[in-house]
Simulated assay, not measured.
Amino acid sequence: MTTTLTVEGMGCEGCEDIVENALSGVDGVEEANADREEGVATVEGDADVEDLVESVEYAGYEAALAD
C-alpha cells in the first residue's frame, strides 16, 4: 500500500534525508521517499498514518495525509 503525506518545511536534501529516516523508523514501513520540491513524502507498506505523521512532526516538519 502506498501512502502519500504532504510535508512542509523541507528546504534541502538533508531535510529529505531526515524525513525519510523518520518515516523508515515507523513499524510497517518498507520504503520511504521524500521530495522537497513537491512537498510530499511517499511510503510503501502498511504503517499507521497517524504514526507516520507523528514521526515526521517529531523530526521537525509539518505533515498531513495528502488528499
Rank of each mutant, 00 (worst) to 15 (best):
A63P: 15
G14K: 13
L23Y: 02
I18L: 06
S24I: 02
A32P: 05
L52G: 11
E62L: 10
E31R: 14
T4M: 14
T3E: 06
E20H: 02
S55K: 09
Y58E: 15
C12K: 10
N33H: 08
E57D: 12
G45L: 02
Y58F: 08
M10D: 12
A66K: 10
Y58K: 15
V53N: 09
A22V: 07
V7E: 00
A32R: 03
A22P: 08
L23S: 02
E62F: 11
L52Q: 07
N21D: 09
T6H: 07
V49R: 00
G28Y: 01
G39L: 02
G11R: 11
G28I: 07
E38C: 10
E30H: 04
D27H: 09
V19A: 01
E30S: 10
D48R: 13
V7C: 05
N33S: 13
G11K: 15
D48L: 06
V56H: 03
M10I: 01
C15R: 06
D27K: 12
E44D: 13
T3D: 11
G45K: 09
V19E: 00
R36F: 12
A66Y: 13
E38V: 03
G9P: 13
T3P: 06
E54M: 12
S24E: 03
D48E: 13
E38R: 14
A59M: 04
L23K: 04
M1N: 08
V19M: 06
E44K: 12
E20L: 00
E37I: 02
G11S: 15
M10G: 11
D17C: 04
N21S: 12
V29H: 05
M1D: 12
D46Y: 02
S55P: 03
E62W: 10
L23F: 09
E16K: 03
A64V: 13
E54C: 03
A64L: 13
M1E: 06
E16F: 11
E50N: 14
R36W: 14
E20N: 05
I18V: 07
M10K: 13
S55H: 05
A64I: 10
M10Y: 15
E20M: 00
L65Q: 11
E13Y: 03
C12M: 07
G39H: 10
V29C: 07
E44Y: 01
V49G: 01
E38H: 02
D46L: 08
E37C: 01
L65D: 04
D67N: 08
V26W: 03
S55N: 14
L23M: 07
V7Q: 00
S55E: 10
T4V: 14
T3W: 04
G39W: 00
G11T: 15
G45I: 01
V40K: 05
E20A: 01
C12S: 06
V40Y: 06
E13W: 05
E13L: 08
V19Q: 01
A32V: 13
N33V: 13
I18E: 03
Y61D: 13
A47W: 01
E16N: 07
C12D: 15
T6S: 15
E37A: 03
T42G: 06
A41H: 09
E31F: 00
T6K: 12
E37N: 09
D67S: 14
D67E: 11
T3A: 06
E8D: 09
E31D: 15
A47T: 11
G28R: 09
D27E: 15
E62K: 12
V26T: 13
V40G: 01
T3S: 10
